[in-house]
């Protein structure tokens, strides 16, 4: 066997993945060949270096707890939802999907219409969106009460790692009420509180990439996902993601998300 052939098999030889005959062939060659002996020493050393250089990464301490708590919440949801309710959900999801696709085909060039992220059955539940629902539904008090976008931006200046520009709307009924800091995953997000016709709307601004729209959602497009009875439109602005939700109709939320502009 030639040295070149040994080079190509030496990795598999070290891994113990050659068939017994080839194993023996390689062994016999190496015993008689100084060059390939050096190669074997090197390959083994290289393997060790790779392992020791790439190891030593510890998961964040709260990862396990986060996973267990989302398992619990998915079990709770499953326990609550009766079969009929779930069938209805599927029906609604299917209906809205068709509707959106239909609109998308006709009007997409003119005005960006919401895109559903994925078929519900394929996509993993997004933990970020779950957290946004939790933030909204727990209705924690605002850290800062202010109606001027500039005051809100100022409040966040030294508290999050990105400049926060609150979303503003042409709709005069939408009022900015205040804001607070809240962790989303391992990062701090800006939570903006609005009121629309006396109902609460929450907008979370995060620099965390959402898993679902990666590659799908383009700048300025609105996508939405239904989580736990809430609709969550999502808009990407640069490297930031704006996630909307609230106690208003889906259509209202989608309309808000589509008409949102950034306060300067």
């Amino acid at each position: 066997m030639k040295c070149e052939l040994i080079d190509r098999r030496i990795g598999a030889y070290i891994d113990g993945e050659l068939d017994p005959m080839s194993m023996l062939d390689v062994e016999r060659h190496i015993e008689a060949c100084a060059r390939c002996q050096e190669m074997l020493v090197f390959e083994e050393r290289f393997r060790g270096l790779v392992r020791e250089s790439l190891e030593g990464v510890e998961p964040p301490r709260n990862l396990k707890a986060q996973i267990l708590s989302s398992i619990d919440s998915s079990e709770r949801k499953a326990a609550r939802g009766s079969l009929a309710a779930r069938a209805a959900q599927v029906f609604v999801a299917a209906a809205s999907l068709t509707l959106i696709v239909g609109i998308g085909l006709q009007q997409r060039a003119l005005s960006p219409e919401p895109l559903a992220f994925h078929e519900a059955s394929l996509s993993p539940p997004s933990l970020v969106l779950d957290e946004v629902v939790r933030i909204h539904s727990s209705a924690l008090p605002a850290d800062v009460r202010a109606q001027a976008p500039s005051e809100i931006s100022h409040y966040f200046r030294d508290k999050v790692s990105f400049p926060v520009q609150p979303a503003v709307f042409d709709d005069g009924e939408v009022r900015l009420m205040g804001a607070r800091l809240h962790p989303v995953g391992s990062r701090t997000a800006a939570v903006l509180y609005y009121e629309v016709e006396g109902r609460r709307v929450t907008v979370v601004v995060t620099d965390r990439d959402l898993p679902d729209p990666t590659g799908r959602l383009r700048e300025g497009e609105v996508a939405y996902r239904d989580v736990g009875g809430y609709t969550l439109p999502v808009v990407k602005v640069g490297r930031l993601t704006y996630i909307f939700t609230g106690d208003v109709e889906r259509e209202t939320l989608l309309r808000l998300a589509r008409s949102a502009r950034l306060a300067r």
Binding site: L54, E55, V57, E58, P59, P60, L63, Q66, I67, S70, I71, S74, P124, P125, L127, V128, G185, S186, R187, R208, D209, P211
Partner: peptide, 23 residues
């Protein structure tokens, strides 16, 4: 998590990937 970090090269992405995987 180790595999996820080496694949995604990002802490947040690794975090999300492992959570999705476990769920």
């Amino acid at each position: 998590y180790l595999a996820a970090r080496r694949l995604t090269r990002s802490e947040t992405e690794a975090d999300d990937l492992v959570q999705d995987t476990m769920l």
